[in-house]
Amino acid sequence: MMKLMKSRVKTKILCSLAAVSLSLGGLAQADEWPEDNIRLVVPYSAGGTTDLLSRKVADLLQKELTTVVVENRPGAGSTVATGQLARGGRGSDHMLLMASPGHTIGASLYPNLRYDPVADFAFVRNVINIPNVMVVPGDSPYNTVAEFVEAAREQELSFSSPGIGSSVHMSGELFKNLTQTKLVHVPFRGSGEALPALLSGDVDVAFENMPTVYPHIQSGKLKALAVTTPTASEFLPDVPPMQEAGKGYGLETYETSAWFGLIAHKSFPEEGMVKLQAALDKVMAGEDFQKFLPQFGAEAGTVVGDDFRDFVQSELKKWSDVAEKANLKR
């Protein structure tokens, strides 16, 4: 929208003269989507992981559709931008938002949310998933999830996270709930602060995003005990998935990941949805996207449309329960 604002304002003023008799402008938009630039709202500040992924997706998407303008609207987790999208209004038929775990976790963490995280939105598709990895310091006495759980039931162990309500934090809380252990959460501000504490052994474990810890697993400074996805990751083929490694310890259903997907306002035009999903299919099958994924230890997203909605719904339920048990629910 901000693109060519000047000319838009100018044409708007000109149009306003003509539009008095021609109120057909509003009807025209249905048959030719997109009739304007697409705005992709990133609910976090520029330069973060969500921003980086969004810009890459936007870059590839605009080769298929039309200009995609990325806009950062950080604030209160991701809830400020999400709330604005939910309110809709002018331009919302060309507005997308890159949703991430914050979308579902934020619903539990932030009080009096003025929107319904599922009902108020149209779900385009899940684009990228980044698995989390359960890591312990390289010189830690624990070599398997089983050993760790046994120890954590005996004594208070601690886990680090880049901040309260992050997928890394919630993965830890979920682990704590399912295994009935006494893990203590030590919050940091960003992975940059959290990592040194883990590397030096000040905290005992973390459930960090793959790209953050991958180089340290390679160099042996960290030991990976499990990945949080149901199947092993191609980056760490020797590391078992949590569901397998934690069998018998209540972890049979454990599954978390940092997912990223596009959502829109609930009144998003049907035609736009179809075109957008087709364009995304093309983008995600493309070589560029496939080459981009491994740089973030990421996997292509799988769920589309209503399946994506169901996925978000189940995530919402999962984190709401976890937040309740961790006394985070507002």
Binding site: M2, M5, V9, I13, A19, V69, R90
Partner: peptide, 15 residues
């Protein structure tokens, strides 16, 4: 940096 274009002008042009 997306500075606001002004909702007043937009609504004026809608008339």
């Amino acid at each position: 940096v997306p500075l606001p274009p002004g909702t007043l002008w937009e609504s004026l042009s809608l008339i």
